[in-house]
Write a protein that binds this DNA or RNA. Structure first.
Lengths: 230, 230
DNA sequence: ACCTGAACACCGTTCAAGT
DNA sequence: ACCTGAACACCGTTCAAGT
C-alpha cells in the first residue's frame, strides 16, 4: 500500500532475460534497501523473499543473484543500521566521547525500531559494526586504560546498551510511553502476592525510555570512568 | 534422533477421537515441554507445530486444543525458563541478594541456551517473570531506596543482564570460549584501518563469558549500591 | 551474467467431520 | 471435550531453461 516507486522498474510481468536498458538493475544494495523498507512498514516477522521481490517488481528467484539467502538479507539490514551511527567527535573528555557513541547508537536503532533487533540479537562481526566499536574503546585507551580492562568495560557497556535498546524497541509505541495506558498491566502487577512489586507497580507501569536510557548510561559510564587510571 | 519416549503415547497413526485409556493426555504443559526439548536439540528456528506434534505422536492440529498458536508455545517456553530461577535467600546484604538473583537468572538461561532468546527478546509480562523481578527490587526497597529510583536501577541492571546473556547464548559453544579459535575473526579485526581496534584485537578475539559476566555485574551493582541512601 | 518459472519440501492455521 | 485430516495460503530454495 502507498509505496512510492521510483520510475525505474523492470517491465511487466511477462518479461524474461536481462532487464531493458534504462531500468534500474538489481543489486545487493537495492535488495537490502527494499527489505528494510518492508521491515519498517510491516515488521521483521512479515518479511519474505517473495514480498521483497514483489516490491522490486522482480521474480523472487532473481534476488538470489545478489544475496546468498534470507539470512544474508538480514545481515545486510543490520549493516545498514550500523552504518547510520555517526562518527563521534574526536575531542572532548573520554566520558563525553563514550556518551556520544552510545547516543548515536541509540538514535540509529530508533530510526528503524522494527529492524533494530537484527542488530541487537545477532553476532555483529561485520565491518560496519567495527567502526562504532573502535570509537567506543578509543577514549578508554587514550585515557590510559590497559587494553584488557578496556575490553571488559566495553563489553559491560555494550551489554547495557543492547539490553536497554531491545526493551525500548520491543515495547512498541503503545506501551510504557503513555502514562494512561498501563491499566491492565498494573492490575497484573498488583494481583500477585509480591509486596515489593505492589510497592513499585505504579513506576513499573510507565516508562520514559529516553530518561531511562540516560539514567542507565550515567550509571554505567560513571562506573567505567572510575576504573580509569588517575 | 535418540529421543527417549515415555511409554505413554497415543496409538498408531490410524487412530481418531479420544485417546485410549492409559495413554498420556495432551496438555499445555506437555506441549510446551515437548517444544522446549525440541528447541534444546535443534534450535529455536527449527521448531514447528508439526514437529512438536510428531514428537508427541499426535496430529498437528491437536495442539491447538491446548495452546492458542505458535507464539503461545514460545510464551510457554519463556515461562518455563523463568520458573527455573531459584528463589534467592532473603538474608544477606542487599548486594549479595541482588547478585544471587542475577546469577540465578544467568544459570536458568544457560540451562537452555538455545531457548533463552525467548525470554531475553520478548516482553516478559508473565507472572513467572514477576517473582524474580520482585526478588531483585526487594533488597533495594529494604535498603531505603525510594520506589522510583529502585525502578530506574532495576531497569539499568536488567538491561545489562539481558544484553550480556543474549551475547553469551548467541555466541555458541565454538566462539569466544576457545582461545585457539579466534583466528579468522582476529584477522577481520586487524584488517580494518582502525588503530584502536588493532590494539584490543587479541582481547576481543577471546571471551570468558563467566568472567565477563562477573566483571560487568560487579561494575553495575557497585554503581547501584552507591545510589543507596546511607 | 543475469533473470525466470516450475517444482520441492516445507510452514501455520481454519474448518468440518469424527468419537 | 478432544482429536483428526484435508485444505488454504503461504514459505525458502534448487534447478533447468531462457536471453
Amino acid at each position: 500500500m502507498g509505496h512510492t516507486d521510483p520510475v525505474t522498474t523492470t517491465g511487466p510481468k511477462g518479461r524474461r532475460g536481462r532487464p531493458p536498458r534504462g531500468s534500474a538493475t538489481l543489486s545487493r544494495e537495492r535488495v537490502v534497501e527494499a527489505a528494510l523498507a518492508l521491515v519498517d512498514e510491516e515488521g521483521l516477522d512479515q518479511i519474505s523473499m517473495r514480498k521483497i521481490a514483489q516490491r522490486l517488481r522482480v521474480d523472487p528467484m532473481s534476488l538470489y543473484n545478489h544475496v546468498a539467502d534470507k539470512d544474508d538479507v538480514l545481515d545486510g539490514i543490520a549493516e545498514a543500521l550500523l552504518a547510520g551511527i555517526p562518527a563521534p567527535p574526536a575531542d572532548g573528555s573520554p566520558r563525553e566521547r563514550m556518551e556520544a557513541v552510545a547516543r548515536g547508537f541509540r538514535t540509529a536503532m530508533l530510526a528503524h525500531p522494527k529492524a533494530a533487533p537484527t542488530v541487537l540479537t545477532r553476532q555483529l562481526a561485520s565491518p560496519a559494526g567495527l567502526a562504532p566499536l573502535a570509537a567506543a574503546v578509543a577514549p578508554l585507551l587514550d585515557a590510559g586504560c590497559p587494553p584488557r580492562e578496556a575490553v571488559h568495560a566495553l563489553r559491560a557497556a555494550l551489554g547495557f546498551l543492547v539490553g536497554s535498546l531491545l526493551r525500548e524497541v520491543n515495547a512498541g509505541p503503545s506501551f510504557g510511553t503513555d502514562p494512561a495506558a498501563g491499566g491492565q498491566r498494573r492490575r497484573t502487577l498488583e494481583s500477585a502476592e509480591l509486596p515489593s512489586l505492589t510497592a513499585i507497580a505504579p513506576h513499573l507501569a510507565v516508562c520514559d525510555h529516553e530518561a531511562e536510557f540516560e539514567y542507565g548510561l550515567d550509571l554505567v559510564l560513571t562506573a567505567v570512568e572510575r576504573k580509569l587510571p588517575g
